[in-house]
Write a protein that binds this DNA or RNA. Structure first.
Lengths: 333, 333
DNA sequence: GTGAAAGCGCTAACAG
DNA sequence: CTGTTAGCGCTTTCAC
């Protein structure tokens, strides 16, 4: 492996000049730059990441703590991850992947100076990892919204607004009896706040507009979906509008409606809350509030880099929901 | 941040003693060890990863190059990834996540000494990344099987055997006309070899047993599944056995069979090739050849670590398939 | 516009 | 069983 000394020797310059040629932190004459670049190419030189980290206090690595459980909405997690990795590349950063169950993972990589910043997904209201995060010298960005975000950057979809938007859409079409099929019970009791925030927006907006509204949790399985649909049809036989916030159960929910003789949107209008590709991948294109997971991941990186460069303080950003009307919603009969 | 010098001073020992206390590379008296550990705790000391990497030529990081396209079998990819991350933890390694489209990612992290080894998923027959991999000083492990694996470790499910096993199961039940609904055309033409290997095993075994056999590609969407089912029913009206090697299309395939009036397993027996949780998450538990993605990821790490410690040479490991009989297969009427 | 040299924090000879 | 010290390869003052 060639070192910076080798490059300097071959190019006939000092090591500092080689270093500055890379960093651009001081002017280099065109001629010198050319000779350095030549030597770099000839020697196939790559700076040693560890040496660089040691000297510069920067690793060009972001930690991403992701919930790698296979149960919930894997494709959404994946989209967050790709959003983060792709955007990180734009800032010349790589991504170190940590899992939820790696309990002192954050501390290990942050305190050990392996990373410049930490991005954490799947944040709960009273997340026990937050104190650890606040104790580190690296900035942290949460995907999700804890009860107390002091000192931490947060980004998420505005799920209360999602609930309101979906209700408004159905109400605008004339629906008066609506239902929400939501996240698994485990997600709600884990106090991952997005599920509860959506329920709150749904409930409050329905109340404000004087609609009848019911809410059912839904396990992420075929049978869970069927149970939820039957629950809804039993407790509210006159339901004409349905909001589904559960990507995994979505196909089975639609199938269950069909098998119960409910035409979509003839008998029941369906608004999904899911990534666009999921809404388009069903048996018919669904009216949906987009879950812009890829974008959220990218924004998380932007906020992390902003903190690193000292341009931005810690702040909370809630993205406004966008509903796209497709063929699964219509006025009630 | 406390350094090793601080620890040494507080503990009243030399830095080498502190270092050796950590690494265990030389005996330390119980008394000394206790004082060092005390100091470490008091100072909340963590070794600086960069400094360590610089001095030891070891980063305790594995690179994982994963195909983060959202199109194909996301949940399978996720299982590979969790398998890798989980097993890496057991060896005190973290995982740096690279994406397929990050073209010089491997070279950057390997030549820059950011990682100790590289694990690469989704390998194609003539993968252009292999020469780059071979050029690095770090060992590489492929998940998949290229045409020429010289110098590289490989691990994968034995997909030819999978094809044979599935055919044997159906043949054993008495089926004589069988079909395979496989991967999307893009996967086959990309020359990811697993798809083709399964087809080969399927075709050869069917020929050997004198069965009628047809094969259809299948796009990973609702409509793709329906098309594939209709193709099969058209080209082989008497089909009674069906093998499905496409996790994404699987639910839609089952639904399409049902809607075409085909009872499973009454009219058609179905063998899936997919992870266990997918086989169990359908409307009924499917007879399936398990795709042990988590295990394969773990084995990849074992092979990487084995190479690092000099215990193992580069080798290819093909895991034997396991078929579990559930309720979706039965003798033909 | 360029160079010399002092670290960054650790590991692993070498020395006892 | 423990200590001393020379690097590991880079960044960044300080000096010209």
């Amino acid at each position: 492996m060639a070192t910076i000394d080798d490059v300097a020797r071959v190019a006939g310059v000092s090591v500092s000049t080689v270093s500055y040629t890379f960093s651009g932190k001081r002017p280099i004459s065109a001629a010198t730059r050319a000779r350095v670049e030549r030597a770099v190419r000839d020697l196939d030189y790559r700076p040693h990441a560890g040496a660089r980290a040691l000297a510069s206090q920067r690793t060009q690595v972001l930690a991403l703590m992701a919930p790698l459980r296979v149960d919930v909405n894997v494709s959404v997690i994946m989209q967050f991850v790709t959003g983060v990795v792709t955007r990180a590349q734009a800032f010349k950063h790589d991504v170190l992947l940590l899992t939820q169950d790696d309990h002192d993972g954050i501390e290990r990589v942050a305190a050990g100076s392996m990373v410049d910043a930490v991005i954490m997904m799947d944040v709960e209201a009273e997340d026990p990892r937050l104190p650890i995060l606040r104790r580190q010298r690296q900035p942290a960005v949460l995907i999700g919204l804890p009860r107390d975000p002091t000192g931490l950057s947060c980004v998420d979809l505005d799920f209360e607004a999602v609930g309101r938007t979906a209700v408004d859409h159905l109400a605008g079409l004339g629906h008066r009896q609506i239902a929400l099929i939501g996240s698994p019970r485990a997600v709600l009791s884990r106090r991952t706040t997005y599920a509860a925030r959506l329920v709150r927006g749904f409930t409050q907006e329905a109340a404000r507009l004087g609609l009848e509204a019911v809410f059912e949790t839904c396990e992420s399985s075929h049978s869970g979906a069927i149970d939820a649909v039957d629950q809804v049809l039993t407790s509210m036989p006159g339901v004409t509008g349905l909001i589904v916030h559960n990507e995994v159960a979505l196909p089975a929910v639609l199938e269950a409606l069909r098998s119960r003789g409910k035409d979509v949107p003839g008998d029941i209008s369906v608004v999904a809350v899911c990534p666009e590709d999921v809404a388009l991948g069903q048996s018919e294109p669904l009216t949906a509030v987009d879950l812009p997971a890829h974008t959220i991941g990218a924004v998380a990186v932007d906020m992390a880099i902003g903190r690193l460069t000292g341009e931005q303080p810690a702040e909370t950003r809630l993205l406004a929901p966008v509903l796209t009307t497709r063929t699964s919603t219509a006025p009630p009969r």
